[in-house]
Amino acid sequence: MSFSIDTVVEQVAAQFEQSPLKSTIENTVKNCLNQKQGEFEALTTALQEGELTQEEFQIELEREKGLLTAEMETLQIMAKAEVQKVVNQIFQAIASQLK
């Protein structure tokens, strides 16, 4: 079975259909996976050819999961910072209107 980034992105995006951050999440996941596609294919090939045991394969997947988690947490921090900027701007505008 070949690895399809588009299939993964579609499955993830479907879970966030109602989220206002859907496109941001979708783009981040797609970019991360596009960068890793060669690695995933190499891991699959190594497993199929017996160069990796199932346990080693799982360890590598967990490592990749940790890297993707870090990417998504970075996105979370960036989103929180943007929300804080908007809130600050709103209250600066309110304060200037109330003076």
Score class of each variant (00 low, 15 high):
residue 1 M to F: 06
residue 1 M to G: 14
residue 5 I to T: 07
residue 5 I to N: 11
residue 5 I to C: 02
residue 5 I to R: 11
residue 6 D to S: 12
residue 7 T to W: 14
residue 7 T to C: 13
residue 8 V to R: 13
residue 8 V to I: 14
residue 9 V to L: 11
residue 10 E to P: 03
residue 11 Q to K: 12
residue 12 V to G: 03
residue 13 A to C: 03
residue 17 E to S: 06
residue 17 E to K: 03
residue 17 E to I: 00
residue 19 S to L: 07
residue 20 P to M: 04
residue 21 L to C: 01
residue 23 S to I: 00
residue 24 T to Y: 14
residue 26 E to T: 06
residue 27 N to D: 06
residue 28 T to H: 11
residue 28 T to A: 15
residue 29 V to E: 05
residue 29 V to P: 01
residue 30 K to F: 01
residue 31 N to H: 07
residue 31 N to S: 08
residue 32 C to L: 06
residue 32 C to H: 08
residue 34 N to S: 07
residue 37 Q to C: 05
residue 37 Q to K: 14
residue 38 G to D: 07
residue 39 E to G: 11
residue 39 E to C: 01
residue 39 E to T: 09
residue 39 E to R: 14
residue 40 F to W: 03
residue 41 E to K: 10
residue 42 A to N: 10
residue 42 A to H: 00
residue 43 L to K: 13
residue 43 L to C: 00
residue 43 L to W: 09
residue 44 T to H: 12
residue 45 T to N: 14
residue 46 A to S: 04
residue 47 L to N: 06
residue 47 L to W: 00
residue 48 Q to F: 04
residue 48 Q to V: 05
residue 48 Q to P: 07
residue 49 E to T: 14
residue 50 G to E: 07
residue 51 E to I: 02
residue 55 E to R: 09
residue 55 E to D: 07
residue 56 E to D: 11
residue 56 E to K: 01
residue 56 E to Q: 15
residue 57 F to P: 00
residue 59 I to N: 11
residue 60 E to Y: 05
residue 61 L to P: 04
residue 63 R to M: 12
residue 64 E to G: 02
residue 65 K to R: 15
residue 65 K to M: 14
residue 67 L to V: 10
residue 67 L to M: 10
residue 69 T to E: 15
residue 70 A to S: 13
residue 71 E to R: 01
residue 71 E to L: 10
residue 72 M to Y: 10
residue 72 M to G: 00
residue 72 M to A: 02
residue 72 M to W: 02
residue 73 E to N: 06
residue 73 E to A: 05
residue 74 T to W: 13
residue 74 T to D: 15
residue 75 L to E: 00
residue 75 L to D: 05
residue 75 L to C: 00
residue 75 L to I: 01
residue 76 Q to D: 01
residue 76 Q to K: 04
residue 77 I to G: 05
residue 78 M to L: 09
residue 80 K to A: 08
residue 81 A to C: 08
residue 83 V to Y: 08
residue 83 V to A: 00
residue 83 V to W: 09
residue 84 Q to I: 00
residue 84 Q to H: 02
residue 85 K to Q: 06
residue 87 V to H: 07
residue 88 N to S: 06
residue 88 N to K: 03
residue 88 N to D: 12
residue 89 Q to S: 03
residue 92 Q to H: 07
residue 92 Q to L: 13
residue 93 A to D: 11
residue 93 A to S: 11
residue 93 A to N: 06
residue 94 I to N: 03
residue 95 A to T: 04
residue 95 A to H: 01
residue 96 S to Q: 12
residue 96 S to P: 00
residue 98 L to A: 10
residue 98 L to I: 12
residue 99 K to W: 11
